[in-house]
Design a protein around this nucleic acid. Structure first.
Lengths: 201, 201
DNA sequence: CCTACCGATCGGTAGG
DNA sequence: CCTACCGATCGGTAGG
């Protein structure tokens, strides 16, 4: 019988990656040792190397998978015939939902990617810059047709992305905020602003 | 002659703290070694201990000074007779300007404080929670008098703070964004939203 | 300010 | 999956 897919191997590797993501999120990549990861899986550190090659591979897998998901979504949104503002809303909703579904990995990709080593560092940075430029392009199109307020696209993209990334701090919040409240509130603030009048000056 | 103020000692300590802030910002606290800090000052690592007691003291000094500045400003704003929305705007402008003036320390306080050890960890966390609760209180007052849109104060405070914190990424941006553009754009988005209509639904 | 050095911990390998 | 162990690096001290 031909060995087609090493199911067990892949699944155990994923278990290690998930454990690593939780610890990278909690302590940061440099402060997380292979011994910590091993302990959280109730094995000894050297055993991890049966499933992965190195500590940095764990970070690479997490960051690249997140980057792929964001870019895949962006491509889908770009392919629609939606208006620029509708596209921006779709992109924001996707980002928020990614945050809800897998905030550990998204946070790690956002905050720990600087610890990637070449060539992964450069690959990730290029993907990230490309994503931001393309979203900025949508903003510019919306501004050109007076659908989006006259804002600096560079500053706006930074504001939107960091506003959404930052909300994963809701985890530590005493009261549980439900997913829908979170999503509708962030969208309301970013699209309509805090001011009750909602007027432009 | 009485030795009144050990000017040299304090000033050298500050030099070490500033160098540490730059490296904590660049590499993160755990990935920054005392040898890195020493090297950036062209001395050997053990020499640093003539001016400071430990690595963790450096982080504590940075985090506590930032916390103090934010809370001092909040107290001043609370003591005015401004409307809630005006208070929120003042708080946001102060935060943005802190970011421009000392983004290294503000970033370190925001992202590295989790590496503080007790009792500093708990002290900082308490200050941070208190700050957020008091700003949330201003938001609630503004909502109650229909000056601020009906948003969840918890989610809003998270959104505002992380939106502003995140913009220190402008440093790595190719084009230099001037301070005023940055401040007015972020305020415009958070107060009036992205939508050109600026209408509420 | 330096050299010399400490015990602890790191990522990872050898070998089974 | 384990035990045993490696060279490198860590924060910090002794002593001058």
């Amino acid at each position: 019988m031909a060995k087609i897919i090493p199911t067990n191997t892949r699944s155990k590797k994923d278990v290690v990656v998930v454990a690593a993501a939780a610890l990278f999120r909690e302590k940061g990549y440099p402060a997380t040792s292979m011994r910590h990861i091993a302990e959280s899986l109730s094995v000894e550190a050297p055993s991890l190397y049966n499933h992965i090659d190195s500590k940095k591979e764990l970070l690479e897998l997490i960051c690249m998978r997140v980057a792929d998901e964001f870019i895949t979504n962006l491509k889908q949104v770009e392919a629609t015939g939606l208006t620029p503002l509708e596209k921006i809303e779709r992109i924001m909703r996707f980002h928020i939902r990614m945050m809800m579904r897998d905030h550990l990995s998204v946070h790690v990709a956002e905050h720990e990617w600087r610890h990637l080593e070449e060539p992964a560092y450069d690959r990730f940075k290029t993907l990230r810059n490309s994503y931001r430029k393309r979203v900025a392009g949508i903003l510019e199109a919306g501004i050109a047709e007076n659908q989006i307020a006259k804002v600096d696209p560079q500053v706006t993209i930074l504001t939107i992305i960091s506003a959404i990334n930052g909300i994963d701090a809701w985890q530590h919040s005493a009261k549980n905020i439900d997913a829908e409240t979170l999503e509708e509130n962030i969208l309301s603030i970013l699209l309509n602003g805090l001011s009750a009048s909602g007027s432009k000056n």
